[in-house]
Design a protein around this nucleic acid. Structure first.
Lengths: 212, 212
DNA sequence: CTCACTTTGTGCATACGTTCACAACTACCT
DNA sequence: AGGTAGTTGTGAACGTATGCACAAAGTGAG
């Protein structure tokens, strides 16, 4: 389920506040879903709650972590270190969620060799050349790749990543990537998100005009 | 529908290549969906195709633009001009898709006054103070706001934007925002996307172990 | 021990999105 | 004109996700 990460985050915050027991109502409210939906989602993992009481926050958190595969560390390679690539590399939310950025790759000779601090603990990483992509990926044994390149380069980078054994790709470039079926591709498109908002904005405006 | 922006992008590319007629098969393949799904999506807008021939690419593109509200220009305010905010401001895909970044707001005094080039045509914008948020939003009459702040500040910024009349919000901060029902909130969470990939990666690994 | 109260887990009904299959329509060739 | 190939639009079947409602199970007071 795609909502597990949300529950995971909410539970993290809750346990940090020292709360030990949480009901489905509370957890659902904090996650922005209905309590019935939440209970069904959690029952998918097993019966980790106790009736009349609620869920043990820490225990439930651990179970979700296990289900999400967050008990291990996933090495991640980022290709394309422009503004977005920088933002991703610096994003603090990765380190404590089972991800470690282990490779920064760009095609721009100007950028190669530049150092970037990744994560919040100040680890330093050098930007490496696109030519060495295969070598880098094999060295760090990355299964997850992030594409933050311009649209024109995305498909080529994708093919090369897949050739090196990468099986999960997060794509920020505004193109539809084609790969074999066994590769998981997720797309995040900034313009698309705004367009969806504009769509609703416009429908709102239309409805208004009818009323007025 | 959430797939309209994809069709829009694909159609843009197709018309730029001078292609005048396109069948549902072709368009579906380029968009990564099935042809039946695409036809149903398009029939939602009306009957803009001709049987036996296909769709007139330019005409269909215009109809989608109209439906998405892209025939007008939406002013957008970005709050939080860190790495991600910069990436968004520079993102070239907005300008030619009906969006204009008209406000950059940050809380950091160091950043205020700094100039940023937004879009690809080199328009220059000054970063303004969070204190002036209300004034700025009212001045440019923005209905769409982007939150790229740290998690701790997001809810406060959201409330203030809504108070100024913003009715659509794109949230990059890793928190669940609570607002009134009439405000459209979309969330893009980078860590969540990676977690979903890791989830599939792990299941893949589990299955493998069983076989081995 | 019993009773009143709380909360989970789940069977069932409903709504939604997707796929299938085909009638309706167009273009073109003979 | 008639027939064949190609393509859209859509009704019907299917599967999945959501919401409802309640039995099962736990807690605590008297």
């Amino acid at each position: 389920m795609a909502r597990l990460p949300i529950y995971h985050r909410v539970l993290s915050q809750i346990t940090e506040r020292g709360i030990v027991t949480v009901s489905s109502e509370e957890l659902a409210a904090a996650s922005g879903v209905s309590s019935a939906k939440l209970r069904k989602d959690l029952s998918f993992l097993g019966s980790y709650g106790t009736r009349g009481v609620g869920y043990d926050a820490a225990y439930l958190l651990y179970q979700i972590q296990r289900e999400l595969g967050l008990t291990q560390d996933w090495p991640v390679v980022i290709v394309g270190v422009g503004n977005l690539g920088h933002a991703l590399a610096n994003y603090g939310g990765f380190a404590n969620r089972g991800f470690r950025v282990v490779g920064l790759i760009d095609a721009d000779p100007e950028l190669i060799g530049e150092t970037v601090t990744v994560g919040r603990d100040g680890e330093i990483l050098k930007i490496q050349s696109l030519n060495d992509l295969e070598k880098i990926v094999n060295e760090v044994d990355a299964l997850i790749g992030v594409i933050a390149t311009p649209a024109a380069a995305a498909q080529d980078v994708c093919d090369r990543l897949v050739d090196c054994g990468v099986t999960s790709i997060l794509n920020f470039a505004p193109v539809v990537l084609t790969t074999t079926l066994d590769v998981h591709v997720r797309k995040v498109d900034l313009a698309t998100e705004l367009q969806i908002l504009a769509f609703h904005e416009q429908r709102r405006g239309d409805a208004h005009e009818v009323i007025v």
